[in-house]
Design a binder for these strands. Structure first.
Lengths: 366, 366
DNA sequence: ATGAAAGCGCTAACAG
DNA sequence: CTGTTAGCGCTTTCAT
């Protein structure tokens, strides 16, 4: 009864101890503190473990005991496929992954499908066994952000200008960066400007509704501060040049798909045919918009100025005039803030630098 | 003593129960089986929870009890940054993430840095609280693969032609796919062929050693079957055309970086200047090789035929002659195999189709 | 509809 | 170097 070679029941640390007639501590030590027992006792333990098919201490039980999960959770409010289609977001994830790898921590991509109810028991934010969370670019009122806050674990928010109490924050100065870019565009002489932005609300419109002209109300209701700050930067620049920001044609793209920028560009030009510059809050929008313009035979920058934001490789290689931001570094910093938090335990605000890239897609208006 | 609003100690299910003078079962039910108690008792529970800052059942403790972690682990033997730089690998991850999202499961990227010792207690493969693992393109003798096998959890291996006992498998027919491509190249008249491959061994050479000509011994010792199968496909085609596969110049690229293909191409052409076709086991290698050739003023396909493997978007848009494989679908399948395993519990082998893409980078030799 | 009791598998003092 | 003693926080029969 004591040494059946194929126990029907999964071997545990306790069963190993019983088999070897030693205490559980000894087994535990064999795995966790090899120096605490003689080499050959350890050998015997490992050999018996192998024979019994014992894979070592159960990670979950250990987590429960030590209160460490060995992983951090990443919450992205977009469908994960978005995170994998925008190089800027992807680079952020890569940076985060890199810092996790360095720290020997896992990175748990938390499933946050649009349809998943927030409060039900299967909520994966609540179900995630992690030591902390990184929340990427959520709206202030995002229900998942609220849930994460409830969990009372360390949190780092990224691209979330508004303060989240107790959370550290990694971001850039979106408003100033965009303002510099807009200053440049306005300085070139543009007066009628179209502004293409990502979604401003938590609801998800699709299909025909995916793009829409943004009313002042919707803009002021927006809870996506990254977008509104960038828009604000453009408004600042216009106001600074004596232009009325209300003349800006803002189009929102709710779906984030490769062709979203094209649809938004079309709507913008349709809404105001006198537009001479299309500014976009993301390079992916700008690139798609340029594809649209090319298909329409509208030359950039001859007939239309186009600008982006992010500085993704494709944008840079295509000469897009844009703002370059250190997405990878954002990810690394976010991870580091979680893995080695500041001594004093106080939240940190880490504002990373950006750089205006004067590419080849901006010129004077016709 | 009973209703202090800010307990120094984290609230638990038990403390809530004590506070409300109900049993733990009731609290548990309030979260997990709302229909098992009256609506207003449930309200009271939730209200008290909020007051005490109780975020709901601890995920780790629940995992221990229920033996479910709500997440699957992904083990990639490359540094994670590789997974984020090769679109083919990335697409696979995206597909896997998508199926996890659908299933409401988390996806844990397991840290498998090169320097991390396999057997130490901090081994993140052992530390991961997951319900199953996906192992992506590891060598047969990869130590992490062995570790994962020990864990006695469901496993799906991807791009791993050799059988792993008890594991399901998602793959393509690398050998046949590459053979078709090589048949095409040989059919064009090429006799001196260079073959650029990813690393064939577990050790990691860097810097000057990163690229190297592959000896027959090293080839036969290779444990990366995806690579060796693709190489085998080329050999098959040559043999089929009456050519001696031993004349193939095989260069291995151990680092996987954007410029790796260039270095490998240079070495191949240096080793055998009569090469008229460079076949690559990955599109990223081929693209980098093409960049190198362009820089050298060598025209493709006029002076050099180049082929790839994977069918990543950039390759397709650049007209690369290659084999297209459904990377995203591989990820989805792998996930599904874990989330809803076949009834009979038997391992599944899922061979996905590939397609020969006759692009614009292959032509007759000069 | 609610409660009592029995662990899930492990680690961490502390004592020998 | 090894064993004893207590839990970590939760779910789940089985009663009531």
């Amino acid at each position: 009864m004591s040494r059946s070679p194929a126990p029907r029941r999964r071997a545990t640390l306790a069963s190993l101890a019983a088999e070897l007639k030693v205490s559980r501590t000894t087994i535990s030590n064999a795995y966790n503190r090899p120096d605490q027992l003689s080499a050959d006792l350890r050998e015997r333990v490992l050999a018996t473990a192998k024979r019994l098919g014992y894979a070592g201490p159960d990670p979950v039980a250990r987590s429960l005991r030590t209160r460490k999960a060995g992983a951090v959770g990443l919450v992205i409010t977009e469908p994960l496929t978005y995170a994998f289609s925008d190089p800027a977001a992807l680079n952020f994830v890569a940076g985060l992954a890199e810092s996790c790898e360095e720290a020997g921590q896992g990175l748990l991509l938390v499933a946050v499908g649009p349809d998943r109810s927030v409060s039900d028991g299967t909520n994966s934010v609540l179900a995630a066994g992690v030591d902390g969370f990184v929340v990427y670019s959520a709206a202030d009122d995002d229900p998942y952000l609220q849930t994460v806050l409830q969990r009372h674990v360390p949190i780092v928010v990224v691209d979330q200008p508004v303060d989240v109490p107790g959370a550290s924050r990694v971001c850039i100065d979106d408003r100033t960066a965009m303002r510099e870019l807009a200053d440049y565009v306005v300085g070139l002489g543009h007066r009628e400007i179209g502004l293409l932005t990502m979604r401003l609300g938590n609801e998800r419109r699709v299909g025909d509704q995916a793009s829409g002209v943004v009313s002042p109300d919707r803009l002021s209701d927006s809870r996506f501060h990254v977008q509104t700050e960038r828009i604000g930067g453009v408004c600042d620049a216009m106001a600074g040049a004596g232009l009325d920001p209300a003349t800006l044609t803002i189009v929102e793209s709710c779906e984030h798909r490769p062709a979203s920028g094209a649809a938004a560009a079309e709507l913008a030009l349709q809404t105001n045919p006198r537009i001479t510059a299309l500014m976009c809050t993301a390079d992916v929008l700008a690139i798609s918009a340029m594809d649209y313009l090319r298909a329409k035979g509208i030359y950039v920058p001859g007939q239309m100025t186009v600008t982006g934001f992010d500085g993704i490789p494709e944008a840079l290689s295509r000469g897009l005039t844009t703002v370059s931001q250190p997405s990878l570094e954002k990810g690394k910093r976010a991870g580091r803030l979680l893995h080695s938090p500041p001594r004093d335990g106080l939240p940190v605000i880490d504002v990373l630098p950006t750089e205006l890239v004067r590419g080849r897609t901006a010129g004077p208006p016709v």
